[in-house]
Each structure stands twice: as structure tokens, then as C-alpha cells.
Amino acid sequence: MTAVGDPGPFASHLGFRVVRADAEGAVVEATPGPDHVNGGGILHGGYLNALLDSATGWAVHATGAGVVAPHVQLSTQFVRAGAPGRPLVCVATCISAGGRIAMTEGEITQDGRVIARATGTHAVIARG
């Protein structure tokens, strides 16, 4: 896998690293810290959603240069609790991209086990 550019200010603030974004999809990694947990001590769902949002967005970006791809909808299934201090790997793919809407899937693993998965739709907006 080859490294890609800056994931953007918000994703950088959360510690997300874009490892790969190409025709195959995107891989975004993160190592959550103690600030990313909820009151129960497990990873906050908002942090996991932000990771899925970033990775699926990168998968859409990789389908064409100059495309902005904000989410229209994201449906997340939280499979098991995640823990801080251990790396997360989010793999995302763009299932289809039309002139206005793109469909995506993403999955987060930690220690080789699925933590969360999502399907989503993104608006496809040409920069210009």
C-alpha cells in the first residue's frame, strides 16, 4: 500500500491516516486514544462513524479527480466494542458512482476483528 496525502484538518485532528486511496477503494488507519472513548470506556460511536465517513469519502474521491463527496446518508452497524490504544483499520469501497450519487461500503477492524461496518451514499460534486 502506498501512502496518500493529507486526510484533511478534521480527520488529522482525530489521528486518521490515509494509507491508500485508489481504484480498489481506500484504507484509513487510526490509533484511538483515551479521549476517544465514551463514559463506559469503549470507543465512542461518533469516532467510529467519523472514521467510516472519512474512509468511504476517500473511496469516492479515488474514482475521479476533483470530486467532493459529502455524505447524504450513512448507516452504521456497531458489531463489538472497540478499545483505545490499539490500531483500527478501515477498508472502504465505492460500489457505484453516478453523476450525482455514489454508493459505498466500509468496515473497521481492530486486532483482526470487525468493530463496525457501514453502507452509505455520497453526493458527487465536481470541484470547479
Rank of each mutant, 00 (worst) to 15 (best):
T2P: 10
A3T: 15
G5R: 14
P9D: 15
F10M: 14
A11G: 07
A11K: 05
A11Q: 14
S12L: 15
S12D: 15
S12V: 12
G15A: 08
F16P: 13
F16D: 12
V19Y: 14
D22M: 10
D22H: 07
E24S: 13
E24C: 05
V28D: 05
A30Y: 13
A30R: 14
G33I: 13
P34A: 14
D35W: 14
D35P: 06
H36T: 13
V37D: 01
N38T: 13
G40H: 15
I42P: 07
I42M: 11
I42Q: 12
L43S: 11
H44V: 06
G46I: 04
Y47P: 06
L48F: 09
N49V: 09
A50W: 00
L51Q: 15
L52A: 06
A55G: 01
T56Q: 01
G57K: 00
W58M: 06
V60E: 06
A62H: 00
T63W: 01
G64Q: 13
G66W: 02
V67S: 03
A69Q: 10
A69V: 05
A69F: 02
P70V: 08
P70G: 10
H71R: 03
V72E: 06
V72K: 07
V72P: 07
Q73G: 07
L74G: 04
L74Y: 04
L74C: 09
L74K: 04
S75W: 05
T76H: 05
T76S: 11
Q77T: 11
F78T: 05
R80D: 10
A81K: 10
A81T: 12
G82Q: 02
A83D: 07
P84N: 09
P84K: 08
G85A: 03
P87T: 06
P87C: 06
L88C: 05
L88F: 08
L88T: 03
V89G: 03
C90K: 02
V91L: 06
I95K: 08
I95F: 01
I95M: 06
I95N: 10
S96E: 12
S96Y: 02
A97P: 00
G98K: 04
R100E: 03
R100H: 01
R100W: 01
I101C: 04
A102D: 01
A102S: 04
M103V: 15
T104Q: 00
E105Q: 08
E105G: 02
G106W: 00
I108Q: 09
Q110L: 03
D111I: 07
D111T: 07
G112M: 12
G112E: 11
G112D: 13
G112L: 08
R113E: 09
V114C: 12
I115G: 04
A116E: 03
R117L: 08
R117Y: 05
R117W: 03
R117T: 08
R117A: 05
T119I: 10
T119H: 06
T121N: 07
H122F: 07
A123V: 04
V124M: 04
V124Y: 04
A126T: 14
G128R: 10
